[in-house]
Amino acid sequence: MPYLQSRSLDEALAELSAAPLAVVAGGTDFFPAERMRQRSRAILDISRTEGLRGIARVPGGWRIGATSTWSEVARADLPPAFDGLRAAARQVGALQIQTSGTVGGNLCNASPAADGMPPLLTLEAEVELASAAGRRRLPLDRFVTGVRRTDLGPGELVVALHLPEPPEGAGAAFVKLGSRKYLVISIAMAAALVTLRGGRIATARIAVGACSPVARPLPALAGALVGLTPAEALALPADPERFMAGLRPIDDVRGSASYRLDVAHALCLRAVAEAARGAADA
């Protein structure tokens, strides 16, 4: 049972196309799951693969390499529109998990409660995939397709996330609800990205996690907030049928479906209000 570690991406992709391999980057999801399986597998370690790591300004936006860790995201010098993503980075498990765990791994693990998903949705992230056959890009909400399901094909690796230039002056926030402070899987969470004009919300993007198989944007709620002051936004009455359409929360040990639906509204509004505080008024 080999353990492969590749410096070159082409080499890694060649290995991956030749034989089924378990891909490991940070290991934070891999090892707990592997221990439940009771069977060791051949491993491809991409933590040192060149070109997969790092956060950089690129023409038209930003690129986050797939094996960038959450600590790197949390410490990166990024504009306020990324504050939600950085806040999420600081709430993935705890420091130990953030040191090891990677952004790409968080997406590939495809947990409904993946902390990275809501802020990345508000940043309109695209996923870049590579295989020996070539490269492709697709929007994040088409990459993660269900509970523990992605569009990752055989022999394919997530290489990077591409984030288009966020709106000028945007502020962003992430709010996570759990039963304790640290090391907690979200009961529900919300991310918001907001621009202001004349003290009122000019544009808003909102996404909610842990309330559907895959985190979802809530465009109807975001639309309803446009034109409101942040204080007015905080007082917007709940209207689940209109605003929460698309959420399909479940009952589990962390909370009931109806509870999730109730708190999702409050979390979204709080995220919006906090995002507005970080936005530059135009």
Binding site: Y3, V24, G26, G27, T28, F31, P32, R35, I43, D45, S71, G93, A94, L95, Q96, I97, T99, S100, L183
Partner: peptide
């Protein structure tokens, strides 16, 4: 052995990690 308790925390190049999750 799952990253849930932190008892196995070691420093890897100075940064805290759960040794149970590091190949």
């Amino acid at each position: 052995n799952a990253g849930d308790c932190g008892a196995c925390t070691v420093l890897l190049d100075g940064a805290p990690v759960c040794a149970c999750l590091v190949p």
